[in-house]
Nucleic acid binder design. Structure first.
Lengths: 216, 216
DNA sequence: CTATCATTGTGAAATCATTCACAAGCGCAA
DNA sequence: TTGCGCTTGTGAATGATTTCACAATGATAG
């Protein structure tokens, strides 16, 4: 109970749902801070994030003990701690592959910048798009991918290409040493161990809704 | 073991992860069918969707028994059955609120149409956008929302407005009787029981990646 | 300084999800 | 028709996550 440091201890096995909830808590903490609230109890955090107080405390307890008994959690301090847990206490170098509609929605999403994500390169395979300006970037030919991913020391690649091109893109990205990918293509991608992939799949979400509507 | 009909039986409690996997299986079945494969075993389905054969069989067993022992599953038949389970054996009437970049990416996503989702109305609050053409639709003023959602008998609403407007939009949408919402705004929305919400939240996904990169 | 109050941190219990393991069923060959 | 090989469907076992429940502790008031 002396541990106050964050970060995964050896052998830690944090579940994906815990990490998702930490993101939620962080968002609430930002709101609370903007709102001038000094402290929040696990009960308040739970209420606002749609979970239970015990869940909030358990999630946080994997990483340390950040509250004060009888008082709750200091908003600015817990915010700082959760940012550190999630790795948001540094900048991240991001590249986008696929300069279509989805990529376009992404690059103009300015919360991204505010959160420490810097989009440093944009690639496309369409020769007519190469060289065109895109936000603050210029679209690069996809043949340059391996070189630029390395030269720019890219941490995270966002894949926003058609489904049938996604696996090939992914293989090249992973081959260039990138170990985290956000995939918008509606396919399940195969990756070697040690590479993190998160999928954003509208079709799956819509089907979740039609299932819910169909079954009561 | 005589039950072959799909659909939730009384008291069924299907987990969200099972439903997500069903979407994956369906996608694979489409590919397999396009590819001329007549049958697939649970082992093959598992291999292609990144899960285990036992998981595939368990998922399907909640709804009936669709395979032939010794042979596997007939691709066209299982496809039809999974479509029925997910409620994809009918069309769905969809409206979009928020005619920004994300909405724009959605409306031009033509797989949507192919899957039985018909976007029948688009709303925005920006007076300069009202009346402009958008895909096959014309942008409607958001004051018309309640009336049009009812008149068009909308089943599912896609919310693609800024975070600080999302809860108000949701309340109006739910008040109009809509019971399924796909939310792109980066907030956790509060809904009454009986309303299904799925969130597509890029920030949460990106933070999942930074967590993974930070903690080995 | 002590009592009171609120709220955390955390083992233990309960619930939920996945994996195991195998009997039962089907197709095929002889 | 019988036997063999393959694959399903499913209880039982295991593993993971959530919830419970309470002792420990900081803040505060008298």
């Amino acid at each position: 109970m002396k541990k106050t440091r964050t970060g995964a201890e050896a052998g830690s096995k944090i579940s994906e749902s815990t990490v998702r909830r930490l993101s939620q808590y962080l968002r609430l903490l930002h709101e609370a801070q903007a709102n001038g609230e000094a402290t929040l109890s696990s009960e308040e955090l739970a209420e606002r994030s749609g979970t239970t107080a015990a869940q909030v405390r358990k999630d946080l307890s994997f990483f340390g003990s950040f509250g004060k008994r009888g008082l709750g959690y200091s908003v600015p301090e817990l915010r700082r701690q959760v940012e550190e847990i999630l790795g948001l206490d540094r900048g991240w170098r991001v590249a986008l592959v696929g300069a279509g509609k989805i990529g376009s929605a992404l690059i103009s999403y300015r919360n991204f910048r505010r959160m420490g994500f810097d989009i440093l390169a944009v690639f496309d395979s369409d020769p007519t798009k190469i060289g065109q300006p895109w936000g603050t970037q210029t679209i690069l030919p996809d043949a340059e991918m391996e070189r630029v991913l390395g030269a720019e020391r890219i941490d995270i690649v966002i894949v926003a290409v058609p489904a049938d091109a996604a696996q090939a893109v992914l293989d090249r990205v992973v081959g260039s040493g990138v170990r985290a990918v956000l995939n918008f293509a509606p396919v399940r991608l195969r990756v070697p161990d040690g590479v993190a992939v998160r999928n954003v799949d509208m079709v799956v979400e819509m089907e979740g809704l039609t299932f819910a509507l169909t079954n009561r």
